[in-house]
Nucleic acid binder design. Structure first.
Lengths: 351, 351
DNA sequence: CTGAAAGCGCTTACAG
DNA sequence: CTGAAAGCGCTTACAG
């Protein structure tokens, strides 16, 4: 006790702006600062007694070790850079949540940057991540082109992509199984009795769109339904695009009786646009992709292909940390979606 | 040219894991590393010629300055820690987007942590921010109690809160004007002819709920409508809570003809739950708060009080950077919401 | 088990 | 305009 109090007293406050350092603690404890360093990371052999004393003093002084100094010394920051094209897209949130949870548990922090789909900003983000010496980078974006590949390639730190169309050899990636998901969705519609089924895609040239479209085609083909090119429309990303697209489809003759959408955001607009003129699902069945949290609350509740987003986020971070630990992991993992049938799909009404 | 090539050549690669440093560049350029440091930050007087040469060499060598070393030397990290209670709550996204945009423009990075509403995790997050020596912390959460106030208080770095109920003296905050927003919402219902108006609140004991409830009361009082305590229900946060609450209300006798919800997430459930038994807005008008992006796409589109979230995010970051620049700013700022009338509200039907 | 030294990669007075 | 030195706050062989 007496010792402790003395120690605290001798810990004279430095000029405002200097946080208390390991050396201050060392002085107070009457040991070398390297000993303090050891004691604080419990690990390396330090006599229990000294270690305890040091820890007490440190605690009393409100000492928090400097991660920046440690990073400089160890050449590791325990920082994971995460690039998102648009943090406003609900698709990303659960993934980030999953990522962040695992990171936090393992003592890593996530540094987030929203590129807003702007290639210049993306460049700056990657540059900033480099300067900050992040240990690894996760890229989450279905929209971005391969444009900044070169910057990423130079980095020689682990890069992990989620549902990305960058599929070069140098990166690791986790992807949803788009083809199978789309097949499940369209088979469901066919099983309900639909023959005139449309696809509303993402006009951005992304693999995920091509793959979901491919699944759509396969499902139709296996049911011997001819693919009608007019029923394949691509529109601007987001709900507004869905509204525009469904209006176009409903103006056709004959009209489709069902539509499979690239994702839920599009389906959100489709539902809205369709219900201005017809009933869903009586006149038009609608299927989405993703299963955003809101899907179940829509009117009617949306049938969709669920992506296990939270799990994907966890998976990606686990994979990233394994890479950091030098473990070998497979370059590409794919996870399966799951069709969730709700109220937005039904048998076509007899005409 | 020749010089340049020679320089590059003399830049011998070090052992894999060491990035090229300012000293490597200095050696290649035949100058002291302090000169390189100056040249790279253009500012401090260096002969243009030398500066250019240094920059060329640095570029050719793929040099990126180490923010961690710089941080250690300058005692600034240009890192802003952002704590969110639940990154999955759509309310936060646009705010983060606004925050991030401003931060990025000013050379700051955002380090994000999701506390999941778990006080322990929140503690760890704050501790981690401390260790990383973030320059400032932004706390975004309407749910968290004052529990970690002490940790934050010790930090002696700027703390800025958004819509938070922590309203101690030591922090700065930006808040939506809850009372006025709620008054606008309820006045709108009254103007439509409603007299039996219910309030569905957030069961978590937060200021924002108390304030919106107060606005609700005031609006009723100014119209000489007696407040019916049965019409004030508090439920679990989120859409499910809204479903439960509206069922309860619709089982009353007489039933309310309109309901003002604490926020859009609750309203989302209310819309869903209500439409299982009555028509909206014919039998029940519904008003939300926030104007999440999805509000306009609901069926019927949701009347709600819009919070300028993106602007609030920007505002908060601007305020934070001002604090960092040592400028004086007011402790508290409040921004006004704006009633957006859509299809979920109408005059009560004659009974 | 502990100390002393060197090093991580920058910045910044201080001289010249 | 440039160099040399000291310092930021840690870690980690190397001795003892």
């Amino acid at each position: 006790m007496a010792i402790n109090e003395n120690s605290q007293r001798s810990l004279k406050k430095k000029n405002n702006h200097r946080a208390v350092s390991i050396k201050d603690i060392a002085k107070a404890a009457g040991v070398h600062h390297s000993t303090v360093s050891r004691a604080l990371r419990d690990g390396p052999m330090v006599k229990d007694e000294t270690a305890d004393r040091i820890r007490e003093i440190a605690k009393a002084a409100g000492f928090t070790i400097s991660a920046v100094a440690r990073s400089l010394a160890t050449q590791k920051t325990h920082l994971i850079g995460v690039v998102v094209t648009d943090i406003t897209d609900p698709f990303h949130h659960e993934i980030i949540s999953g990522l962040d949870k695992v990171a936090e548990e393992k003592g890593y922090s996530v540094i987030l940057a929203d590129s807003q789909g702007d290639p210049d900003r993306e460049r700056r983000v990657v540059r900033s991540f480099r300067e900050r010496r992040v240990d690894a980078i996760v890229v989450m974006s279905s929209r971005v082109g391969g444009r900044y590949t070169p910057e990423l390639a130079e980095l020689k730190i682990p890069i992990v992509l989620i549902n990305n169309q960058l599929r070069e050899g140098f990166v690791h990636s986790v992807n949803i199984n788009n083809v199978e998901g789309a097949i499940a969705a369209v088979r469901h519609l066919i099983a309900l009795g639909h023959r005139r089924i449309a696809y509303i895609g993402n006009e951005n040239p992304v693999y995920s769109d091509a793959e979901r479209l491919m699944g759509y085609r396969r499902a139709l083909e296996e049911a011997n339904i001819e693919v009608n090119q007019d029923f394949i429309v691509h529109s601007e990303f987001g709900p507004e695009g869905g509204i525009v697209a469904v209006r176009k489809l409903l103006a056709m003759e004959p009209t489709p009786t069902a539509v499979f959408c690239y994702n839920d955001m599009l389906a959100l607009g489709v539902l809205k646009g369709a219900q201005e003129v017809v009933r869903v699902p009586e006149d038009l069945s609608v299927v989405g992709f993703d299963d955003l949290f809101l899907a179940r609350y829509l009117e009617p509740a949306l049938t969709t292909v669920q992506q296990p987003m939270w799990e994907m986020g966890k998976l990606v971070m686990e994979l990233t940390l394994k890479l950091l630990a030098g473990q070998k992991v497979q370059r590409t993992m794919s996870v399966d979606g799951k069709l969730i049938v709700r109220a937005s799909t039904a048998a076509p009404s007899q005409e």
